[in-house]
Design a protein around this nucleic acid. Structure first.
Lengths: 341, 341
DNA sequence: CTGAAAGCGCTAACAT
DNA sequence: ATGTTAGCGCTTTCAG
């Protein structure tokens, strides 16, 4: 492979001139610039990323870090990943995928220690996520999709859960629903500090209280079986809520499907709203799920922007942003049934 | 941050000794090794990845490349990505995610030109994928998940489509089904050379012919609307097949849901089998889809192994492997209905 | 068994 | 406007 010196020789200029012609960090006459460009093209030259990284200060790689999940991830999560990668590329960075158990903080430490990446973007953060301390100590720029409880000094972009709760509850209340069941993630996940689960529960509780509506929380695992369990719980209730909010797509789908088996009509008998689920997933279920979810690409994009700002800005600023969720009314929700007399 | 020379100074040895103590590429007395290790620990030293990459020959980064899809990807695809990343890590490599339009071959070229990555793993390859030529010309190691038509000299791991077709068709034939409809990807996708679509169609046709069963192919887009269109086509058929094979999860789910709306009973009236769909996705649908799909993690894992072999082996070998699909019978399939007399 | 020294291919300060 | 040169932090020969 051709090196910069080969290009310089062929163009008849000094090596540094080649560098400057590429970077534009000093003025080069059009004549020599043309010669350099021609030589580059002829030799099919591209600067070596490792040499650039070692010599300069810019290391054009970002890491996207998420804890390995036993449950696996859904297409909704992949949308975040894809969008983050595309945004990184648009800003001139490569995106490294990195995943290890949350408990294994060493993994992150070793990644950072190698100085391979210029910054780290955290996904699936918990309210007391230990990764933040690791990164703070390492003095490496970072930002997160989602936020921990103690988030004063850090840059993040997160879903506006409070707003999501309000939108969903108000929508249901306006349709005459008088009580709500919330399908939460498993107790273990909650204890692990799952941010969306905790914040959503809080938001729904508040919004429901504001509308004077009782709310019941049911924790299940995020899979079809969990959804079925939620339905069993639902069926055993003395007075069944007419509205169900589900946080995760697999559990919510499982609930809806089980309800269908049990001859419950959705949305005639009860309304179901899925929170934080992408449209594509929502439409895999029958009836298609009404959703309240933030635009994932935009969250990822802004989070990458925040990270890059933290890397490149001379005076990094803390960027914190809550993205408003959007409601998509599909077939799983409607007016509350008339109470039987 | 501490450098290797700092460690050497603290340990009272020469810099190269530190390197050798780490790499183990020459024998070091236990005494000095202990000193070095202690110094490393004290300074919290990790070798700089860029310096290692520049000085040595090993560049511990792999790229996972897939064309950006307008349709977006599903959780099934994410499983491949996750598994590939984990395997790479197990083998001591980082995994870079990279995606751009197939038409834009320049994008891949620039990635490779930077010599950032030691090898490239291709996903979502088409039968005439232009990316192979780019990589061949660049003389960079590569392997693929899936394969092009001309695959003689390259390493790949792919689903055994022929076997998948046979398994599905034999299963249906044994249950008395006499004709089959195949929901394929859109005509555009087929013309773009979508390998799984083309090979699956071929496999089903062959297996059906062997069992003397007619097969009808219906191309639709991979989303809920596509599934509904497939059902409309189905309903208008003079004699309706009692079995449907679907290639993509969103279209297949859409078909099943639309069938439910049209009061078709699955599996009583017709059986549906989803090909290449993960269990998690299959269970989002009601009735849960019977699937014939290869174990995604194992495909990814072997593909990464093949790539790394191509990078590290002194005499790289061409590794080609077809992974057998597995059938999971769920609720969407059963015996053919008795023909009405 | 260990040390010294020559690069790897660049960036950026120091020249002119 | 361009050339010269000193590193960046390592790996790996060459020399004990």
């Amino acid at each position: 492979m051709a090196t910069r010196d080969d290009v310089a020789r062929l163009a008849g200029v000094s090596p540094s001139t080649v560098s400057y012609a590429i970077s534009g960090r000093r003025t080069i006459s059009d004549a020599t610039k043309a010669k350099v460009l021609a030589a580059m093209r002829e030799l099919n030259y591209t600067p070596d990323a490792f040499a650039q990284g070692l010599a300069g200060s810019r290391r054009g790689i970002l890491a996207l870090h998420f804890p390995t999940s036993v449950d696996g991830y859904s297409s909704t999560e992949f949308e975040y990943v894809s969008a983050a990668m595309e945004r990184a590329r648009a800003l001139g960075y490569h995106m490294l995928l990195w995943s290890n158990p949350t408990t294994d903080v060493m993994g992150l430490e070793s990644l950072v220690g190698q100085k391979l990446v210029a910054g780290v973007l955290l996904m699936e953060v918990s309210v007391n996520d230990p990764r933040f301390d690791v990164l703070r100590r390492a003095k490496i720029p970072f930002a997160s999709i989602g936020r921990p409880d103690d988030s004063e000094d850090l840059s993040y972009v997160d879903n506006n859960f409070a707003e999501a709760g309000r939108i969903a509850v108000d929508y249901l209340a306006d349709l005459g629903h008088q009580s709500i069941m919330y399908i939460n993630v498993s107790v273990e996940d909650q204890q692990a500090g799952n941010g969306p689960a905790i914040r959503t529960a809080r938001a729904i509780a508040q919004a429901a209280a504001a509308r004077n509506i009782p709310m019941l929380e049911v924790p299940v695992e995020n899979n079809a079986r969990g959804g079925r369990e939620a339905l069993e719980t639902y069926l055993q209730l003395a007075s069944r809520p007419t509205a169900v909010l589900g946080l995760k797509e697999f559990a919510t789908a499982g609930f809806v499907n089980a309800a269908g088996m049990a001859s419950l009509q959705i949305p005639q008998d009860l309304s179901v709203i899925a929170l934080g689920v992408s449209g594509r997933s929502a439409e895999m279920v029958a009836p298609a799920l009404t959703t309240v979810a933030p635009p994932g690409e935009r969250i990822s994009q802004k989070a990458v922007d925040a990270l890059v700002q933290g890397i490149e800005a001379r005076v990094p600023q803390v960027i914190q942003e809550l993205v408003s969720p959007e409601m998509a009314v599909r077939q799983s929700s409607g007016p509350a049934p008339k109470p039987k007399s």
